[in-house]
Every structure is written in structure tokens, then in C-alpha cells.
Amino acid sequence: MGNERAMSQLFRYRDLVWALVARDLKVRYRRSTIGFLWTMLQPLLTMLVLTIVFSALFRFKLEHYPVYALAGIMFWNFFSQSITASMNSLKGNASLVSKLPVPKAVFPLATVIAGVINLLLALVPLFVILLVTGQPIRPAVLFLPVPILLAALFTLGAGLALSPLAVLFYDTIEMVEVLLTMLMYLTPIFYPMTIVPEHYRWIVRFNPMRSVLEIFRDPIYFGKIPPITHLTVATVVTVIALLVGVVAFRRSSARIPFYV
């Protein structure tokens, strides 16, 4: 199947993708008010803990730290939850794809779309925090669709690359979770770059996640459009992730019906 064929297939199944997105969100917010509140509360509580730990115990100076941390946590939650959910989604539907000629990419795709919607909803309490802490909301937030789109495509690439492995090997998900935790500490989510000792900074700099995070956080935290350098790096990283994801997915997902 050529690439165009695969794309037109996905387009044909667009209503299925939306149905899967709706189901995903419904499950997430099942106990409607509690479910919705929890999505808001979880990052807020994490933010609170981090604020106490980092500003009271470790003591580094960062103005409006709660906003800095919350933006980072929201980004990371979107990324890591979407990846894990992509893997589970394909795994859960593996027996289905061995009986119906459904384009397998609909499952990771729907998961990432649901994740984006969830992220957009979580922006609401973030803006409330901005108002409460007296951090001004600047017009630069109108730039947010760009970093969110890049983050979504980056995450889709990673989800595509990893989800077939989760079907073929039972231990994939737990191993990816370990890797994600490691990657989380290597990404300046709740610490500023300045606390990283000079000679270790290159590790964080070479972390592909970093620029994708920074361009998301810049409009919120600094109230500015991210610098062109970060934008360029983030775009290149995203394109690479997506290409790797598509190629890996097409190679390994064809094997799924053989193993179920």
C-alpha cells in the first residue's frame, strides 16, 4: 500500500476515528464531574507538591514557579499518557485488526486526538492559576496552537513507533514506562536549566523533548513567542519522530494479525 493509499484509507475511516475519540473521552470523564475535576486536580496537586519541594527545600529562585511547573506537567502528562494509551489501544484492539481490514493507525491516532482535547481542557485551570498568581496572560498565548500541533505530531510519531511493539511483546509497556520516567527527569519540566551543572547541560540540550516543551511553555510562562532556534529544532525533531513512527508502524503493524 502506498502512502497516499494509506492516507485516503484513514480519511475514509474518519468517522471511526471520531467515534474512538468520543469513547476515549467518555471513559476518561465517566463519573462526569469527578472525572473532569480529577483531570484538573491531578496536575494542580502535582504542582503544589513540586512548589513546596523545590522552592522550600531545594531553593532555587524562579519567579512564578507554580506556572512554570504546571505548564511543564501538563505537557508531560499529555505526552506520556498518550504514548501509554496508544500502546494499550492497539493492544486492546489487536484481535479486531486480525478480523477486519481496519487501518491499524486509527487506534493510536484517535488516542492522540483525545489527548489533545484533554490538554486543551486542562489549559482552563492553567489560565486560572495565571490570573490567581498575578502572572499576566499575554497575546503570545494565541501562538499556542503551533506548539500544541507540533507536540501532537511528535507524540503521534512516538505512539506509532511503539504501539505495535506493545502487541508483539508483553513487556513493552512496562519498559517504555521506565524509559519515560528517565526521560522526564532529563527534561526541564519542574526545574530550570540554570540548576543543571554546566558540564551536564548538554545531556538536557540533546534531549529531543526539550525544545518541544520549551516552545509550549514560552507563550504561557514568559508570555513571548518562542525564539526561532527552538522552533526550528522542535519542527525538525517532530518531522523526524513522525517519519520514524510511520515507517516503523507500517513495518511492524503488518505482523500483528499473525501473532494474535
Partner: peptide, 13 residues
């Protein structure tokens, strides 16, 4: 009916 038809590649309409 909806879920199955969508899986077969039909649209909601």
C-alpha cells in the same frame, strides 16, 4: 450497529 459499520469503513451519515 454504528460501531460495526464505522469499523467496516462506512460514515456516520
Amino acid at each position: 450497529i454504528y460501531l460495526n459499520a464505522l469499523l467496516l469503513g462506512h460514515t456516520r451519515r
